[in-house]
Simulated scan of single mutants.
Amino acid sequence: MTESLLDVHDLTKHFGANRQILKKEQHPVKAVDGVSFSIKEGETLGLVGESGCGKSTTGRMLMRLINPTDGSIRFQGKNLLEMNDKDMRLARKDIQMIFQDPYASLNPRHRVERIIEEPMIVHKMGNKVSRKKKVHELLETVGLNSSHAKRYPHQFSGGQRQRIGIARALAVEPKLIIADEPVSALDVSIQSQVLNLLEDLQANFDLTFLFIAHDLSVVKHISDRVGVMYLGKIVEMADRDELYNNPKHPYTKALLSSVPIPDPEFEQDYVELKGDMPSPSDPPKGCPFHTRCPHVMDVCKSAVPAYQEKEDGHTVACHLYDDQYMAI
């Protein structure tokens, strides 16, 4: 786990730039605004934040299901944004995605066998006999029965459908899997089963994960490092234990305080955030979090905080950790 498999630098996506409605120029929606991170081989990076912060858009840009406005994405040293459609299609063999909705992500007209076999057909892997054998092996691997190959998606529960989606992602033997809220639509009891399955698959198939979620307890269970996003930006990133035990950014502290503790005797210090997240089409000047921050200062309203490393591997974008200000 020494070399970076994926390097993302200053990734940006603005929707609706230069668009006019009724002769009025519309402000672009800054869904992702200068995101940078790397993922090492065999690592799981968790990406967390409120709905609308840009997590899923980031994941889809890595697959180039959405083309970025700016920035670079280097996978195994190659810039994905410089690839033509043919080369990018080949690159997707090594980058697969598990989608959030296990109901919408499977074609209802195809049997499970066809759904899992499809990526192998696209990438011209094996013949019909070998692909069928592999489909059955994958179904067994994700905890289903090989006889399920002849069924349709509507004949399965949500958890079983997500297992089918995982089997499909594994079909082409990828190196990186982008898991976009893979358990958010499932019952809590099923969530743990799917998370444990992903951990087992990572160990057995030497996989690397970008795990996107809004539930910090889920991210803590599976991630090696965690990045916290707010309004299109990463505001803090650290190793899992470091982030949960020593959060620095006020937004991270607020998120962690909202995670329920299963102990009736424990008195939790809840950090209340006033107001809603601002619109990404009209973000506030200065620090994007200053409109809700309980520690806001004058400088926060005018200057964007630098994203800086304060401890080994622990980075944060907050004026409270600038040298001229006192840390929280």
Rank of each mutant, 00 (worst) to 15 (best):
L6C: 00
S189K: 11
V316F: 08
K301M: 13
E181N: 12
M88K: 13
A303Q: 06
I115P: 02
V29N: 11
P283R: 11
T58A: 01
I73A: 06
D269W: 03
R92K: 13
L62I: 15
A254D: 02
M63C: 13
P108S: 06
D269H: 11
A327N: 07
R19Y: 06
I73L: 11
D215I: 08
D312I: 13
M297Y: 13
S4R: 09
K220F: 04
S72F: 03
G227L: 05
V219W: 01
L231P: 03
E265C: 01
R168N: 05
P102H: 10
P247N: 13
K93Y: 04
E181W: 08
Q268V: 09
I164G: 01
T44W: 03
T69M: 11
N107Q: 07
T58Y: 03
S192N: 07
L207G: 01
I178H: 03
V135C: 06
A306C: 00
I328K: 10
D33S: 10
L144D: 04
P250T: 02
N245S: 15
I73S: 08
R225N: 13
E173D: 14
Q193M: 08
L273A: 06
H9G: 00
R151E: 05
P102K: 10
E137Y: 09
L201R: 12
V135Q: 02
E309R: 12
K93D: 08
E199S: 14
M277C: 15
E272G: 12
L80E: 00
E267A: 03
E242N: 13
K301T: 15
T141Q: 14
M1R: 15
S147W: 00
E137N: 13
L176F: 08
L197H: 04
S105Q: 11
R64M: 08
A317V: 06
D323F: 01
L255Q: 05
S223E: 11
K133I: 06
I39M: 04
E43K: 04
P153I: 07
R109K: 12
P278D: 15
Q191P: 07
L195H: 07
P280D: 08
E41P: 01
Y307N: 05
D85H: 15
L47D: 12
D263E: 11
H295D: 10
I166Y: 02
H148P: 02
A179Y: 01
K253N: 11
D239Y: 09
H249T: 02
A203Q: 15
L207E: 01
P108H: 07
L90Y: 10
I164E: 02
E113Y: 01
E272Y: 12
D10T: 04
P174L: 06
P250Y: 03
K220D: 05
H14G: 07
D298A: 15
A17N: 12
R109N: 07
S157H: 13
I164W: 00
F209G: 02
A238T: 08
M297V: 10
F209V: 05
V48E: 06
F289T: 05
S184N: 10
P305Y: 01
V29E: 12
F156I: 04
I178G: 02
K30G: 07
K274R: 14
